[in-house]
Amino acid sequence: MPSPAILSLRELSVSFGRGADLVEAVRRLTFDVAEGEWYGLVGESGSGKSTVLRAISGLLLHWSGGMVVAGEPQRPRRTRRFHKLLQMVFQDPYGSLHPRHTVDRALSEPLAIHRIGDADRRIDRALVDVGLDPSFRYRFPHQLSGGQRQRVAIARALIVEPRILLLDEPTSALDVSVQAEILNLLRRLRGEHGLTAILVSHNLAVVAHMCERLGVMQNGEMVEEMSVGQLRAAAPQHPYTRKLLTASGGYDRQVLAAVGETA
């Protein structure tokens, strides 16, 4: 590990329901993310990858295990300082912006909450930063395309200058050409702001493009952790990771005969 961990999870478990309906969404998950590192969490729906992000972000209050962020052990309730340190971008750009709030309002809200002054200049700069013209400032979400909305969501996350970014499938609701623009934007912002990030995705190619390391989750457990180099070398050990890797290569009747039937 190049530098000390800015975020570490020890045996994180999350369960929903009780009694017979108990579902263990995340089971004893342990991993570290170093300062400046981008870490990918890969898995299919129900694997618990998004639940992990919700627990880290503070949206989920009932989890157990250890969580240390920037040297501070975290409890379910977070401080305002924590929210300035860590921000999140959601999957659905249509659902993550308040339908009645203009871009201006969406961006001034975090500034007001954290009592950061100089809002006017900061908002214009945040828009330029994510590649939007300041003329977008007074538009409503319904006047924006999916890609533009996601840029606004990224601007909103970054306007409080966090050190850690949680990205929950940030491009899976977008067209591929727009995905490329957003991924490029995130990579540029990473360089400019020295961000650390956890990127959750079902798309191995996106994770390989954005991250250095990744963890593969299945049924709430991490089945394998590896570097992107290992992934590129097609060297995953776990059969599930291999299956994911094969499936992401497109449809192939022959290969499918070998892996498809095991599910």
Partner: peptide, 10 residues
């Protein structure tokens, strides 16, 4: 999901 996707396509 991708793995299910492949089965349905098959």
């Amino acid at each position: 999901d991708v793995t299910i996707q492949m089965q349905v396509l098959a």
